[in-house]
Amino acid sequence: MNRKLTDKLATLIFTLFAAVIVLVLAALLSYVLYLGIQQVSWDFLTSKSSNFRAGGGIQDQLFNSFYILLWTMIFTIPLGLAGGIYMAEYAEDNKLTAIIRVCIETLASLPSIVLGMFGLLVFVNTFDIGYSVLSGALTLTIFNMPIMIRTCENAIRSVSPQQKEAGLALGYTHWRTITTVLLPSAFPSILTGIILSCGLVFGEAAALLYSAGMTTPNLDFGNWNPFAETSPLNIMRPAETLSVHVWKVNSEGIIPDIRDVADGGAAVLVTANLIFNISARLLGSWIHRKLTSK
């Protein structure tokens, strides 16, 4: 009787904890979305922000967020894959590997504002790239790389060792076993990891304040020459992202509709993150189904 009671009690307590978590999340989400959705309109998404007057949109900031995300992923995915493959398949179990692991973990837990300062000192100042898409993307690469390395390493390690043995026993070299057996099997988890970290990168603000900057030149969406000063594609121009914009409007904006722009921006950010997370799940399970069943 006593044991049964304890069991019931434990179930109850854990259900309560789960409920609290879900409630907090649901409250937060619905609050942000409720306030924001009223501000979000096609016009809000496709008009330029305004510095003084009410009624500005977030077009450039939204574009910048995606554009910096794109470059970050171009840098991060190869680095993360290479690091993950090394850690999972080549690193021997010794002191050096242990040190590398500590480095990666430390890097992963650095406050992003510290990384932002690092980006300012190294990319913006020392390399003299200035506040730019490139500086921002490089800074976010450092921010995201440890996560990518760990994601790839775990994905490769979670492939059944029997798959690896199958490849080796068929006379594949270690490298070919990695590329033809391990990576394809690890691909769904790697892809899910990439999309999830897209969400993190997309929402990051602190690391970008002093690397991608807090301004955007007057972008001309008719000009796709990547070297033109006002071209959206130019990677050497400053690029205020959406999350930086939300922060800036809130903290130092002088427009009369601060609250509206901030609410709308927040809602768009949250929605984008939701889309990233949900699509990661759907895509992951879709690929898994495709690989394992008929």
Binding site: S160, E165, L168, A169
Partner: peptide, 21 residues
Amino acid sequence: DTVALRKEIGMVFQNPNPFPK
């Protein structure tokens, strides 16, 4: 040369391990 060796000497394991293809 383990590659040549394993081409000459094949192996089948306890649990079936076909590739997920």
